[in-house]
Design a protein around this nucleic acid. Structure first.
Lengths: 145, 145
DNA sequence: TTTTAATAAGACTTAAATATCTTTTTATCT
DNA sequence: AGATAAAAAGATATTTAAGTCTTATTAAAA
């Protein structure tokens, strides 16, 4: 469903939402260990998200990545779209160029129902709310934490 | 969700189910044009499925690929497992190594529900039944047909 | 003001999936 | 028997995603 890059992005964002704010930053180095992701690769993803305005960062000593309150008001779908684009939610599951309600493939309706619901969940829940839900329900972003 | 290879396999199998039997074969050449797939690539996929016992073929002049009645009694899940393996239905959507009912990721339950239903649809419907459903409901395996 | 530790940027490498090309084998038709 | 047309097999090529490495920039601490 999501590219590896996008999976890293989602987990990183949610981790940042849970553990950082304007006064608590975290380095790509530490973050990559916490989430067990390749360091430099994660750094590049975070830089892309910083450029796109979904993550905040500060350079130099004591610098790091974090989510401001404003960052936490965004939603995961926006972030997914920056990384993977909308194609993952739109492309036919059998790879047909034309597949819609009018000319559906044999599995169009099954998939479409799920996608619609999942997409709106990702869109309607703010990062802040996601973090809250994760904390309250003890959900995991990594085995060991 | 599925690899390109697997998408080709599914569409090819269903096309064969609709258009072939013991006395009506089709060549990889024609099939690749009908379904707009790379010829040699499709041929390799069909050869793999023939080896695995899901597709029948005959070599030499007037040869080709086809589905026998026995072939049509199998289900798509088996074929998907031959090509992509079970991982596509099992791997965590966020890429976590451990993600289950006990230690769920933030989207585990949403995804799990869909997967269970979709998987059992693929498993419980024979290729023959799929073909019937496709014919009756005018579903598409390719834009132009 | 120099050192240090962080992000930023971009070049480079590796691995996997996808696609193509060539040769071999086999069955059928002429 | 020879020509033909198909699958089978396997080698090679291309493309894309994933991952790594190196250098530049920046800001704070010493």
């Amino acid at each position: 469903m999501f590219s590896t890059t996008c999976q890293y992005a989602i987990r990183a964002i949610l981790y940042l939402a849970l553990n950082t704010d304007d006064n608590h930053k975290i380095g790509a180095d530490v973050l990559s260990e916490e989430l067990e992701m390749p360091k430099h690769f994660l750094a590049k993803i975070l830089q892309q998200l910083t450029k796109s305005g979904f993550v905040s960062s500060s350079k130099g000593r004591n610098g790091g990545f974090y989510l401001s309150d404003k960052d936490k008001a965004s939603n995961l779908l926006e972030i997914i779209y920056v990384i993977d684009g909308p194609s993952r939610f739109e492309n036919c599951i059998l790879g047909l160029k034309e597949c819609s309600g009018k000319t559906p493939c044999p599995y169009h309706s099954d998939v479409q129902t799920f996608r619609r619901d999942f997409k709106s969940k990702l869109q309607n829940e703010t990062i802040f709310e996601s973090a809250k839900r994760i904390a309250e329900n003890n959900l995991t972003l990594n085995i060991n934490h």
